[in-house]
Design a protein around this nucleic acid. Structure first.
Length: 219
DNA sequence: AGCCAGGACTGAG
DNA sequence: CTCAGTCATGGC
C-alpha cells in the first residue's frame, strides 16, 4: 500500500484546521523566550509565564537580563524546570545582547551559520534553535518535534521513530516546497492536530484525517 | 493517583 | 558513544 505523500498530509491538515498563523506571540524576543520555555512543557503553562513577564514589563532584553534571578524564576515558575530554564533564557539573552545593535544579521546571514551559533548555546537544542529561526526570524528551516515523529509514525513512516532529528528535517525539506509560510503552517498544523487526536490512542479512530490514517500502521 | 507535556544536558558505563 | 536520569509545574 502506498503511503500518503508529505505534501498530501499537509493539504489534508490545512483543509481541516486552516491557517494557524503561528507563533502565538509577538516579536522575536517573545517568540524566542517561548521556544525555550515550552521545552517538554504544555503551552498553557508557557502562556502563564509569558503573561507574568509581560505584566512585570520584563519582556525586554536588557530588563530581563538585569532582573533579579529569583524574581524571574518566580514569574516563570508555571513552566516547570524553572531553575534550568532561567539559566537557558539568560544564555540565549546574552547571545542576543551581543548582536542587539545589528539584529538584521538574523535575517541575512547564512542559515547554517546562525543555526550553529544557536546550537552552541547551552540549553538550545535542535528544535528550539529551529523554532527561533523559523518563527522569530522567518528563516527557511523545518521544525521537527515529538508530534511530528508520532504522527508520521502512525501514518506509515515508521522509520521516523529511529532516525536522527536532522535526517527527518532533511526529509521534510526535500519533500516540501521551499516556502517559509508552508514550513510555518505545517509544523503548527501537526501540533494542533496531535494535541487533539494523536495523543495516547494507538490508532486515530476518531481522527479527523482518518481518510489518510487508513494507511497507518499500529505502533 | 499517575502520566504526560511543542527538550536538552549530564554523568555513568 | 549511547542512554537513563534529571529538571518540576499544571491538566486531565
Amino acid at each position: 500500500m502506498k503511503l500518503p505523500s508529505v505534501l498530501s498530509i499537509y493539504k489534508a491538515l490545512y483543509e481541516i484546521y486552516g491557517s494557524q498563523n503561528w507563533w502565538p506571540g509577538d516579536g522575536w524576543l517573545e517568540i524566542s523566550l517561548g521556544a525555550v520555555l515550552t521545552q517538554n512543557t504544555s503551552w498553557t503553562n508557557v502562556a502563564r509565564a509569558i503573561d507574568n513577564l509581560k505584566k512585570s514589563e520584563l519582556l525586554d532584553l536588557l530588563k530581563l537580563l538585569n532582573a533579579k534571578p529569583d524574581y524571574v524564576k518566580l514569574l516563570i515558575k508555571p513552566v516547570g524546570f524553572f531553575n534550568v530554564k532561567y539559566k537557558r533564557l539568560i544564555n540565549l539573552l546574552e547571545y542576543f545582547k551581543l548582536h542587539e545593535s545589528n539584529m538584521n544579521r538574523f535575517s541575512v546571514l547564512p542559515l547554517t551559520r546562525l543555526r550553529g551559533e544557536l546550537l552552541e548555546i547551552n540549553g538550545i537544542g535542535p528544535e528550539t534553535a529551529d523554532s527561533i529561526l523559523l518563527y522569530a526570524f522567518n528563516r527557511l528551516i523545518f521544525v521537527v518535534d515529538a508530534y511530528t515523529r508520532r504522527l508520521f509514525n502512525r501514518l506509515g513512516y515508521s522509520w521516523m521513530g529511529e532516525v536522527s532529528y536532522k535526517e527527518i528535517q532533511n526529509f521534510f525539506m526535500w519533500e516540501i516546497p521551499s516556502d517559509v509560510n508552508i514550513y510555518n503552517e505545517y509544523h503548527a498544523l501537526i501540533v494542533v492536530h496531535c494535541k487533539n487526536f494523536c495523543k495516547k490512542k494507538p490508532l486515530c479512530s476518531d481522527c479527523r484525517i482518518s481518510s489518510i490514517c487508513t494507511f497507518s500502521i499500529q505502533t
